[in-house]
Amino acid sequence: MFLNITSVAGEFYGYIPFGDIVLYVTEFSAISFVIALFFTLVVYFTKPEKQLESQIGGFDKLNYVSLEELKIRRLMAILCGICTAFAMLTGDLFNYALFLAVIGITNIGIVSAVKKEWVLNAAYYYGIIAMISTLPLFGGAALILAKTGTLSILELAGKHQDLLFQKMLYAAGMVGETGVAPFYAAKAEMFRAPGAPYILMIHLSSLLIVIRTAEILLTI
């Protein structure tokens, strides 16, 4: 079979072709896909949490999510979940980078409806990082395309070329987009916004994206 690849992701189950972009299903990606879709359903059916903020020298304040705010934030969380699910399946480097960009912007969207200054402050700085990291992501993908002549992960898996620097660039883009260790501060502030299941979607998407990027970089 010509598209069969051996990778760290486990057994190869099949592929879904859309022209040059071929989605492929492995053990790992099937499981992640189901997790992301399941969580999207959970987000759709759950009501948001209410936060009780204790105040010094006054009555405690109840933070709740209004209906209008709920609608946009739920929509953003669902879009984020669907994009995360399909990012697990995609078999094209540039397409994956675009998925990361969409996930980044939906993450901003989940918190942008909160009218609190510190949340918007964190969202703004996260947006700046997300914009900067389009350079390493798309630039890394373009350099890989220049060196190997293809963007498809399935083709790259069989070629075994020296792509160390390009992979480093690509990984740096992922680090910025998901907020890995030293660059976590802006994203960690965003998690503190009220409205639990939607905020957790940011968490889940970054976790799945980190694992999936590691898998891609080990495969190619």
């Binding site: 960009a101 912007i105 901003i108 942008s112 200054e117 969202a123 703004y124 914009m131 389009t134 798309f138």
Partner: peptide
């Protein structure tokens, strides 16, 4: 690439305006 940059710029700049207003 161009459209993604443009779109993120749009959303982030609006968030900046909102934050400054708050």
């Amino acid at each position: 690439g161009l459209v993604v940059g443009l779109a993120e710029f749009l959303a982030v700049s609006e968030i900046l305006i909102q934050r400054c207003k708050l």
